[in-house]
């Protein structure tokens, strides 16, 4: 399996992406903002199709689209009335735009499938380098941010009183979510971003571990799930994103079941 270059690249890409999605997802689930990440991936879709239309790489369009939407969302803030409705509106408009751009693309069908459901085996060496840069910078920022972010997520009023800038953290965090989403979409596709962003994070959060342990745990679990999906896909010929989604769901359910059994 590892004799093939594309498989080695795929394993590297899966590692880089999952290592970011795990911890970013942990904060996302903690803060109850998973819907935002879903919407960002859809804006990223519009960006990616737009970039394809203009002759750029879909990853650059996806990153740019999701990033600008994330920053705007952060500035709009929690207090904007009907945040769910607004996010939903942005999501549908973005997806509509994506459909329009696809319409003008000549090789629409294969591009659409790759964007929607991911194409990890199609990751090129240059893309891998991009993923490396994105992952390292995301993790560095998150490490720098995680302490005040945890405080502000759990107790915004108290954190504000202690001198934490809630708005700034909101914006930076959503920018991180946007980058992680764009990366994740390379592997799982925009429709299955939840499988790496939310499933490992939700599993770890349920275990009630200390934050630092849980953050490390999400990296481990997300990478394990992504690699597991790759391996299973190799032996079964079913798509990688299907296996990652399935493993994520099963692990989460098993954790819930185990907790029931052991009475927590």
């Amino acid at each position: 399996m590892l004799d093939y270059d594309f498989m080695r690249i795929a394993f590297c890409a899966a590692f880089l992406v999952a290592a970011v999605c795990g911890p970013v997802g942990w904060f996302l689930v903690l803060r109850g903002q998973t819907f935002a990440s879903h919407a960002l991936s859809h804006v990223g879709f519009a960006g990616a199709t737009g970039a394809l239309l203009l002759g750029f790489s879909p990853l650059s369009g996806m990153t740019l689209g999701a990033l600008s939407a994330g920053v705007l969302m952060g500035f709009a803030g929690e207090r904007t009335a009907g945040r769910d409705v607004m996010i939903g509106l942005v999501l549908s408009v973005a997806l509509g735009l994506g459909a329009l751009f696809l319409h003008f693309l000549t090789h629409a069908a294969s591009a659409a499938t790759a964007l929607l459901f991911g194409d990890i085996l199609g990751v090129s060496r240059s893309m891998l380098l991009w993923l490396l840069v994105l992952s390292v910078s995301c993790l560095a920022v998150l490490a720098f941010l995680s302490r005040p972010l945890l405080f502000a997520s759990l107790q915004p009023e108290l954190a504000e009183a202690k001198g934490v800038s809630i708005r700034l953290l909101d914006v930076i965090f959503l920018a991180l979510v946007a980058l992680a989403t764009a990366e994740c979409a390379q592997i799982t596709g925009i429709l299955l971003v939840f499988t790496l962003m939310v499933a490992p994070a939700a599993t770890l959060l349920r275990m009630g571990l200390a934050p630092l342990v849980a953050l490390a745990g999400t990296i481990f679990l997300a990478v394990a799930e992504a690699w597991g999906g790759l391996v299973l896909s190799w032996y079964t010929d079913a798509p990688t994103s299907f296996w990652i989604a399935l493993i994520g769901g099963i692990v989460f359910l098993l954790t819930c079941g185990a907790q029931r059994l052991f009475g927590r």
């Binding site: 490490a143 720098f144 941010l145 995680s146 302490r147 005040p148 945890l150 405080f151 502000a152 759990l154 107790q155 108290l158 954190a159 202690k162 001198g163 934490v164 934050p211």
Partner: peptide, 9 residues
Amino acid sequence: AARKGQKWG
């Protein structure tokens, strides 16, 4: 989480 929660890192 509140112990020196305003510090970066």
